[in-house]
Design a protein around this nucleic acid. Structure first.
Lengths: 137, 137
DNA sequence: TATACAAATGCAACAATATTGCAAGTATGA
DNA sequence: TCATACTTGCAATATTGTTGCATTTGTATA
C-alpha cells in the first residue's frame, strides 16, 4: 500500500508522492520519466525530478539503463531496504525486442562470474529477447 | 593503427576523427564525452557528437551505461565488425568502486541464464567491485 | 594528377532534460 | 496546536544533444 511504502522508507506522505508511486504500482514494467509525465495531469516538472531522486535514494524505485539510451525506472523489491541509493535485487533486466518494454524478471540465483584480475562484488544482468506477452502472439 | 581502423569501418580518414580515435586508443578504460572534450584542444562540440555517433554506428566504439553514472564509451573488440550499431562482444563491463573507472573485461564465455516466460537472445553483464590496479594497493 | 561528388565540418539556432536558489506551503512529532 | 524541518513551485540557469545550411575536404575515377 502506498502510504506504507513511503512510511517504511522514511519519506513524508504527500499527495504528489502518492500519485507518482501509484503510477509505478500500476505498471508491471519499467517506466521512463516521460511515461510518468504523461500519466500525471498538470504538474511541476522540477518537483517530479526531485521526487524521483528521493525515491531512488531511499530505495523505493531503481534506475534501469538499457543500451541505446533507454533510461527507465521500476519499483524496488521489498528486500531492497538499503538507504542512500544502495540497491539490492535478485532480478535481471529484460527488454523485449518486439514491444520494447523493460521488465524486472526474478531468477532463482544469479550466475557466478569469475574474472582474472578483477574482484566482483555485485553484478547486474541486462538481457534482450522476447517477452511473455509477445511470445504468445 | 588509426587509419586502418577507420578504413576498415568505411569511415573517411579526417584529422579530427584520427584525433578522437587516438584518445580511445590511449585509454585502457572507458571514457565519457566529457573526458574526450577535456583531452581535445579547441574543438567543435557538434562535430564531436557526430563523430561519436558515426563511430558507434560503424562499430568502432560502443556505449556503456552504468547505473547512476554518466554514459561512457570504449573501443569495440576487433570481432565487432557489425555495421549499423549492432555490436557483438564477449566481455563484461566492470566498474571499480574505488577509482570509479569502467573497464571492458574479457571472459571465456558468458554464463547461461534461463528465464521462465522470457526468451533471451542477447545478454550484457555489468559488474562492480575492485579493479586490477586498486587490488594492488 | 586533376576533378567531381559525396561526406564531413563548423556555425547558428534550437530543443530537451536536469539543477539550483529561494519563498511559501505542508506533514509530522512533541 | 504548534514548531520545525521537509516539500513544493516558480524563476533562472546549466547541461546535453540535435537540425539546417553553407563551406570545406577526402577519395574514387577518369
Amino acid at each position: 500500500m502506498k502510504e506504507n511504502i513511503l512510511k517504511e522508507k522514511r519519506l513524508r506522505i504527500t499527495p504528489f508522492r502518492k500519485e507518482v508511486l501509484q503510477i509505478f504500482i500500476e505498471n508491471e514494467h519499467a517506466i521512463s520519466t516521460q511515461d510518468i509525465e504523461r500519466s500525471l495531469g498538470e504538474h511541476d516538472r522540477i518537483t517530479l525530478y526531485r521526487t524521483i531522486k528521493s525515491f531512488i535514494n531511499k530505495g523505493v524505485i531503481h534506475e534501469i539503463v538499457m543500451p541505446g539510451d533507454v533510461k527507465k525506472m521500476a519499483l524496488c523489491d521489498p528486500v531492497c531496504s538499503h538507504d542512500d541509493g544502495l540497491h539490492e535485487h535478485n532480478h535481471i533486466h529484460f527488454q523485449c525486442k518486439k514491444c520494447e518494454e523493460v521488465y524486472c524478471v526474478e531468477v532463482d540465483k544469479l550466475p557466478n562470474v569469475k574474472l582474472h584480475d578483477f574482484e566482483i562484488d555485485e553484478m547486474e544482468i541486462q538481457a534482450r529477447g522476447t517477452c511473455k506477452a509477445c511470445l504468445k502472439m
